[in-house]
Design a protein around this nucleic acid. Structure first.
Length: 680
DNA sequence: ACGGCTCCCC
């Protein structure tokens, strides 16, 4: 018997149940029910393998428990589809605008359909086909549906109405409609159409499944995906390369990377899309190291010429890991292998350069883009924002508006964060108001938290608190966290306690929040409260994720944690740190122990500070990079005050530009000063 | 007579 841990095996049992339905089905459905997140069980499929009615009853109860899917009746949807606007009746004497649109033989219709560039032209050809009576010919209706459903200018509503006039649609028509609905971002309708296909006895083929699995991927509908995998297996399409690629993608989008790998490993033959799908799955789940490892493996088995889509995932991993060297290398291989890059790749490149600390390269790629979309602008605006170049970010935003692109809530998040990183309070508030008035964007809670952040960083703590109290929705933990971190910057204990209290009520499980409030207590020398916080964390079993710093040397990313002695060269690193400290003392540096969260003696505090991961990473970089080159560090936490001062002085002593990306933004250290000017 | 997969921002 199969355990619930392996859904694929479970589905197989389910599939084989055809041979002896009584025992296997009952067991499988019960197991499915308990272990999977299924909301729609394709009843036709179950019927076709004649499950006893007792089992069916247990199936129908499934939908109630499932969060990913509303308890939606497919029949209702189908009825609504049937009631779509009826097919446009052919005009009495259609006057084609283009004289060639006048077929006299059936075969002449196909090139005409292919040449259609708008709905208007399409309707003329459609009218001609109806008038000449070719619509009885299934190949004409199929082409009509395909053209209308899949062209960029097409209309799914119209395609539906044609489809509903077909008496006996075959697999091609169904496949086309399914694909059209997925393309049109209606994945649920696509799944219901598949169910209808089964009910009407139309046999799915290997062209059916890729788009169907894509629909599941869009919905993150694992339960449905697994069932469809079962169908694929049952109908013998499991060896189809593109179906397998789609399965990898579907499992990846549902967060089941292990199942993606399983499908991938079992493949006898793989295409670039197979690799890309798995690489993308890793990238989407934030498993960036694995993503890069797999990309390396792909090269090592002979796929050197990756496609653009593969490299987009690789670039995304570089972006998150701060691996500028590898990102540059990827850019190079794109330029060598492609003739002209598409807008998605270029946007990824801009994002990579900017978030790996090379704003200038990012700007260069951005300005040379022949075509930009909202996302390109969004990436550039938030890129300038995290580098503290607020005014330029607002200029880019104006450019976007001038180009006639419509801003959305996400872009406004970038715009407002640009203002908040650069301390542009008035500009930020002004845009917030214009957003509501001119662009008719209802502020989301995320936008409110941006405004709270904006006010908070600028020291307007009371105003921020007022806004939280008066905003139209219930404040969430993010909003209170913004206020709390502003309280730390401005050392406001009283407000900090208010923010903390509300925050812990909404979300008591975030260790870094307790640390944040502890910081405020430590700054005020309230050691008892610091201890209380620590006790509470311990009581709740919370531990903060260890801080780490990444530094890239010769296209390899090295990771350091605090007090780290696991790196093979740790001896040299500590030797270097010793030298650094020696020179720092001449510059008048003394450790800023105000934020050490332990009430230990000063020497111990200094010792703890001196081993912060950022300092280790910096020492490593100074050893391994040539004089005068820029040092780039990426870390997962925010920088502490001491590391900030320390890094500034190191940049002066060693005459280096040091660029540090912390959790929130970039700091460019040069000649002893930092670009953030205190806003961090 | 026709078709399927992989990719960008918070």
């Amino acid at each position: 018997m199969v355990g619930p841990a392996d859904p694929i095996a479970l589905v197989r049992t389910f599939t084989f149940a055809e041979k002896s339905p009584s025992w296997a089905c009952k067991a499988s459905i019960v197991a499915l029910k308990s272990s999977l997140n299924i909301s729609v069980v394709f009843t036709t499929f179950i019927c076709s393998i004649s499950i006893p009615s007792t089992c069916l009853a247990s199936c129908t109860t499934l939908s109630a428990r499932l969060p990913s899917w509303d308890a939606c009746d497919s029949r209702m949807i189908r009825t609504s589809v049937l009631q779509q606007t009826p097919l446009l009746v052919a005009q009495e004497d259609p006057k084609p605008q283009i004289p060639e649109l006048r077929p006299s033989k059936g075969q002449e219709c196909f090139p005409l359909l292919q040449r259609c560039k708008s709905m208007e032209e399409f309707k003329q050809v459609h009218a001609q086909i109806l008038k000449l009576g070719f619509d009885w010919d299934s190949c004409h209706t199929g082409s009509l549906v395909a053209t209308c459903a899949l062209s960029n200018w097409g209309s799914m509503d119209y395609a539906c109405s044609i489809f509903r006039q077909i008496d006996e649609p075959g697999s091609f028509e169904f496949n086309t409609m399914i694909r059209g609905h997925v393309k049109d971002m209606n994945p649920k309708t696509a799944l219901f159409l598949y169910e209808e296909m089964q009910e009407r006895g139309v046999k799915p083929d290997n062209f059916t499944y890729p788009s169907l699995l894509k629909a599941c991927a869009h919905l993150s509908a694992l339960g449905e995906g697994i069932q469809i995998h079962g169908h694929v297996f049952k109908l013998g399409f499991e060896a189809d390369l593109i179906v397998q690629n789609s399965l990898i993608n579907m499992y990846g989008k549902c967060g089941e990377i292990k199942l993606s790998c399983k499908v991938f490993e079992k493949m006898h033959q793989r295409s670039i899309a197979s690799w890309s799908a798995l690489i993308a799955a890793y990238a989407n789940l934030g498993m960036w190291w694995e993503c890069l490892r797999l990309f390396g493996e792909m090269g090592s088995v002979g796929y050197w010429r990756a496609e653009e889509s593969t490299l987009v995932s690789v670039l995304s991993s570089c972006t998150h890991l701060g691996a500028l060297g590898l990102g540059r290398c990827t850019h190079g291989s794109l330029l060598r292998n492609m003739s002209g890059l598409n807008v998605i790749v270029e946007t990824s490149l801009v994002d990579m350069y900017v978030r790996c600390g090379s704003l200038e390269n990012g700007l260069c790629v951005f300005h040379n883009m022949p075509k930009k979309n909202q996302l390109s602008y969004s990436v550039m605006i938030s890129g300038l924002a995290i580098h503290g170049r607020g005014h330029e970010a607002l200029d880019v935003f104006s450019d976007m508006l001038k180009e006639g692109l419509k801003p959305d809530a996400v872009i406004y998040v970038s715009v407002l964060s640009a203002c908040s990183h650069a301390g542009l309070v008035n500009e930020g508030l002004c845009w917030f108001n214009r957003m509501k008035a001119e662009h008719r964007i209802e502020p989301t809670i995320q936008l409110y938290s941006c405004v709270v952040d904006l006010m908070g960083r600028a020291g307007m703590l009371n105003e921020a608190y007022e806004l939280i109290k008066t905003m139209p929705m219930k404040p969430n933990d993010v909003v209170w966290r913004c206020l709390l971190s502003a309280c730390k910057v401005h050392q406001d204990l009283e407000m900090g306690e208010i923010a903390g209290r509300n925050l812990f009520q909404l979300n008591p499980h975030n260790a870094s929040d307790y640390v944040l409030l502890s910081n405020i207590y430590a700054l005020a020398q309230r050691w008892e409260d610091v201890a209380k916080m620590r006790k509470e964390m311990k009581h709740k079993g919370l531990t903060q994720m260890p801080g780490f710093s990444l530094v890239e040397v010769k296209r390899k990313v090295h990771k350091f944690v605090s007090d780290d002695k696991s790196h093979p060269q740790w001896n040299a690193v500590y030797e270097m740190m010793h030298q650094m400290e020696w020179q720092l003392r001449f510059e008048g540096y003394s450790a800023d122990t105000s934020q050490v969260l332990f009430n230990v003696d000063e020497a111990e505090k200094r010792q703890r500070l001196s081993r912060h991961s950022q300092k280790l990473a910096m020492a490593f970089a100074l050893i391994h990079t040539c004089q005068g080159s820029t040092v780039r560090i990426v870390k997962n936490h925010r920088m502490c005050n001491d590391c900030h001062t320390y890094t500034g002085l190191i940049s002066k002593i060693f005459n280096r530009t040091i660029i540090v990306r912390d959790r929130n933004r970039f700091h460019h250290f040069k000649d002893g000063t930092c670009s953030c000017r205190g806003f961090w």
